[in-house]
Write a protein that binds this DNA or RNA. Structure first.
Length: 217
DNA sequence: CACTAGATGCTCT
DNA sequence: GAGCATCTAGTGA
């Protein structure tokens, strides 16, 4: 009974996570009273991707990965960190995009409260830190994401912090770098990780590790 | 900056 | 019980 609230996820953002992932960069994600621009993402597939949680089939935890696109898949990592994916594949097909880094653009006080003493550019660096800034919990796994037009002008205080909203980037092209994911033999050919070139919210050493001698600016 | 070790709790066999 | 799609603090240059 969700008052006709179907996911407003656009068809352009449905498909192979490797193709959709770079399209999410520059988009704005809202939850928990904080808004951030996505600066680094990573694609995860289904039964083709040995590193994916969905690789060994459907379980209660990863069920959202197999569900409709435009939904959240949140998992607990190392008992501490909550990492979030955006499901991009059609219903019945597993695949999603892990949100690795972001730049906080609104709700800075809340984000700083959740990560005391951390410099602004590092507030949402890494999947666990990003999830903490946005106050994601395991209960948010499976939630629908409301996708709004890029022209949307919002008042953060008026946005329900329990809802997940996404506003895609539109306008001038962004400089996107990409690199292969290390440690996964079967999928080393195609790039899985994408980030905004030169963005200060992404650490340099991690960048160098992920794309040795190639796509970095 | 590079590297190491330890924390921490849910998920699945 | 084992194993994590990780992060931080600590060390040494």
């Amino acid at each position: 009974m969700s008052d006709g609230s179907e996911s407003s996820w656009p068809a352009e953002l449905v498909g192979d996570p490797v193709e959709i992932a770079p399209l999410l960069l520059g988009g704005m994600l809202l939850h928990g009273g904080v808004a951030m621009i996505l600066t680094e993402v990573e694609a995860y597939g289904g039964d083709q991707d040995p590193a994916s949680h969905a690789f060994r089939g459907r379980t209660p935890r990863n069920a959202p990965m197999f569900g409709p696109p435009g939904h959240l898949y949140v998992y607990l990592s190392y008992g501490i960190h909550r990492a979030a994916n955006i499901v991009t594949t059609p219903d019945g097909v597993a695949g999603g995009v892990l949100l690795r880094s972001g730049r906080v653009v609104a709700g800075l006080e809340l984000a700083t409260e959740r990560r005391p003493g951390i410099v602004e550019t590092r507030l949402a660096r890494g999947p666990g830190n990003l999830g903490r800034c946005l106050a994601f919990s395991l209960d948010d796994s499976g939630s629908a994401i409301t996708c709004l037009p890029s022209a949307t002008n919002f008042d953060l205080a008026a946005v329900d912090p329990a809802l997940v909203r996404f506003i895609p980037h539109a306008g001038d092209d962004l400089a996107v770098s990409h690199g292969p994911r290390v440690g996964v033999g079967a999928a080393q050919e195609s790039p899985f990780r994408f980030w905004l070139a030169g963005d200060p919210t992404i650490s340099t050493y991690r960048r160098a590790r992920d794309s040795p001698g190639g796509t970095t600016p």
